[in-house]
């Protein structure tokens, strides 16, 4: 019997920013993007910056944003930055918080620094792993899942350890490329980004098999250039599309997103009516099938006085599509699922 698993994922939006960001976090529905080369962390929605040298390991818990700068762990909450503690020298690239414990991944010595926050103060403990240039980790069901490179020859390798650092198993390995980030979805599947080839793999962790994948190397929709950090939050997958300077947002179902409302697009029959308020510029509208095939591209849509008004005759089959509106320079990029009747 052939069991067919259909992997459907929808691009439900993207946020574009300027420059090279290496990490991001979502804190109380606000997206923070870190720029270690530029020495600041950006609150994307507010345009507000936290000026800090070489910020790495951005993560959040509740309304607190954590990050590491020059071997110092900082906490930022309600507009105030506070030094939490000095860290042993190292290159801390990822962090997470579970209950009262912070975990920081140190790349050079392949350690996870475990930090207890309690009424009695702060305690630190390093957990060493026999890893090679780890890139990301996640804690689930009292296991560490660590993404590493596996040796001089590049690999995507995910290894599970118990909380003391003892090896449990190699969950997944793919040679000839490197991973950028890992995350679990709500269904217990591992999602991992392929930084070299611009793909996202969905892995069934019990068997270490790739259930499906999506994405290709490139700059267009459903394309990635060095995808790294992944975050799963509120049934949405956020992917740092590093060299395309954007965060792409996906879901297993079409859902409305709050990050960039995209109103003013309606379909009647095979006609698409655009009445969209967007910044002035020249836009391109692309229509994709739900499995990512590009169906139609309409170029040269001018936003006059901040509005695109257009009636388009679409000679395509009825069905569900998603529409991506992209400004010529890529500064503005939005997407919506539509049903063509």
């Amino acid at each position: 019997m052939i069991k067919l698993i259909i992997f459907s994922i929808y691009l439900i939006g993207s946020i574009s920013y300027r420059g090279l960001a290496s990490d991001f976090a979502i804190c109380k529905d606000k997206i923070w993007v870190s720029y270690p080369e530029e020495n600041f962390i950006l609150n994307y929605q507010a345009g507000f910056k936290i000026i800090v040298k070489k910020p790495y390991a951005l993560f959040s818990s509740g309304d607190t944003l954590f990050f590491v700068s020059n071997n110092i762990l900082f906490a930022y909450t309600k507009g105030r930055k506070a030094k939490l503690l000095d860290l042993p020298p190292g290159f801390y690239i990822r962090g997470l918080k579970v209950k009262d414990t912070l975990y920081l991944l140190e790349r050079e010595s392949s350690k996870i620094l475990k930090i207890y926050l309690s009424a009695n103060g702060i305690e630190q403990k390093g957990i060493s792993f026999p890893l090679y240039k780890p890139r990301d980790f996640i804690l689930k069901n009292r296991k560490f899942y660590v993404l590493e490179r596996g040796g001089p020859a590049p690999k995507i390798r995910i290894i599970a350890f118990d909380l003391s650092g003892s090896l449990i198993d190699t969950i997944f390995e793919k040679i000839g490329t490197i991973g950028g980030g890992i995350v679990f979805d709500d269904e217990g599947n591992l999602l991992v980004s392929d930084a070299l080839y611009g793909k996202i793999y969905k892995i069934f962790p019990a068997k270490g098999t790739i259930i499906d994948s999506f994405g290709n190397y490139g700059s267009d929709s459903l394309e990635f250039k060095t995808p790294t950090r992944l975050i799963w939050k509120n049934k949405k997958l956020y992917i740092l599309n590093e060299r395309n300077s954007r965060i792409d947002i996906f879901a297993y179902q079409i859902i409305k997103i709050d990050e960039k409302p995209f109103e003013g697009i309606e379909s009647k029959g095979k006609r698409l009516f655009l009445n969209i308020i967007v910044p002035p510029g020249v836009y391109e509208l692309s229509i994709f099938s739900v499995d990512g095939r590009k169906i139609k591209v309409i170029s040269g849509l001018n936003s006059l006085r901040g509005k695109i008004e257009k009636k388009l005759n679409l000679n395509i089959k009825p069905g569900v599509y998603f529409v991506i509106l992209k400004e010529k320079s890529g500064k503005f990029f939005i997407k919506k699922g539509v049903k063509i009747k």
């Binding site: 300027r18 420059g19 090279l20 290496s22 270690p36 080369e37 790495y56 290159f91 690239i93 790349r107 240039k133 890139r135 590049p154 490197i178 930084a195 070299l196 190397y217 250039k225 060095t226 790294t228 590093e242 060299r243 300077s245």
Partner: peptide, 23 residues
């Protein structure tokens, strides 16, 4: 893509020689 993604990125071995595509 190979040079950047493998090493010359902000979290890579060559983090002091990041060759930033946006620059």
């Amino acid at each position: 893509n190979m040079c950047y993604s493998l090493c010359h990125n902000p979290t890579g071995d060559a983090k002091n020689f990041v060759i930033d595509e946006t620059k």
